[in-house]
Design a protein around this nucleic acid. Structure first.
Length: 270
DNA sequence: AAAGATGCCTGTAAGC
DNA sequence: TGCTTACAGGCATCTT
């Protein structure tokens, strides 16, 4: 499941292969992604240079000469650079054939991702109301506290809302709440300022560490599958329901929030 | 307006 | 062994 660190790593990995190159052709083998790829998608891209690739939340933004492509990897998507005309495999839904004979190949078994052209992503419905980047100064120590005062939703739901802050998926929500010792079911509006400062810190640290690690692990996007950049051996609670807390050795509890498995330590997290 | 529920998908694991 | 079923989850969108 690509979380923000994997998307950032993808962005950095693709850029040197694609920046300044022209899209010579686009092959859509399966248009049924989260949002159907329209028939004129290829025509909107062909003969355009890729000026830049950036990330907003978990969205990748390809800046072309005219407009942008917004891409999302959903939970099973990946983008990689293919050389030597390697034959497409199952679930390789889209290829961009580039002027340097490389191919940008989109692979997504569950097809929860998307790929679409837009004149201006800042005005696009998917992008325009997103919360701040967790690694930016806009995600200040006081931000979550101020935004949460009238919220009765569980704090885990609150921090996973991309309109509040982007890039905190299920894994990192669980891990950051554990690190900040906050119970995931606690009402967002009833978490103190000091504890939100700790939570903000935890989110920043965990995400930047994962990006750092993702960068060294994924190295290059040529002929390699972009495997997740988080590391099971470094998870304190996610996927460990029923096992013992690594901090206090009590048994970790598991419940469901927004149909998502939610693991926490009832002793450490209040 | 806010919060909870739903649906999109398929690979994997568990159960019979 | 082979079949069936449950589960995983980002996030837009629908319902309450």
């Amino acid at each position: 499941m690509p979380e923000l660190p994997e998307v950032e790593t993808t962005c950095r990995g693709l850029l040197p292969h694609l920046k300044g190159k022209t899209i010579n052709d686009v092959i859509v083998r399966h248009h049924g992604l989260r949002f159907a790829i329209p028939d004129d998608f290829a025509a909107q891209l062909i003969q355009q240079k890729i000026r830049d690739i950036t990330r907003r939340g978990k969205y990748l933004l390809f800046r072309l000469e005219h407009g942008y492509v917004i891409a999302h990897l959903g939970m099973s998507g990946s983008l990689r650079i293919v050389t030597n005309n390697e034959a497409p495999r199952k679930h390789d839904h889209v290829d961009w054939i580039m002027s340097n004979n490389k191919i940008l190949r989109y692979h997504d078994p569950r097809r929860f991702g998307c790929m679409l052209w837009t004149p201006d992503p800042q005005q696009h419905d998917l992008i325009k109301d997103l919360g701040p980047e967790p690694l930016s100064t806009a995600f200040s120590d006081d931000y979550l506290f101020e935004r949460s005062r009238d919220k009765s939703t569980p704090v885990k739901n609150f921090i996973m809302d991309s309109h509040v802050v982007v890039g905190v998926g299920n894994i990192y929500a669980a891990e950051s709440l554990f690190r900040a010792q906050i119970h995931p079911l606690r009402e967002a509006g009833r978490v103190s300022r000091a504890r939100y400062v700790a939570l903000t810190q935890a989110i920043r640290e965990i995400l930047s560490y994962a990006i750092e690690r993702g960068g060294t692990t994924l190295r290059d996007f040529v002929n390699s599958d972009g495997e997740p950049g988080y590391f099971a051996q470094e998870l304190f609670v996610y996927g460990r329901g029923g096992e013992r807390c690594l901090r206090c050795h009590h048994v970790l509890k598991e419940t469901r929030l927004q149909q998502r498995s939610t693991v926490y330590c009832p002793t450490c997290q209040k």
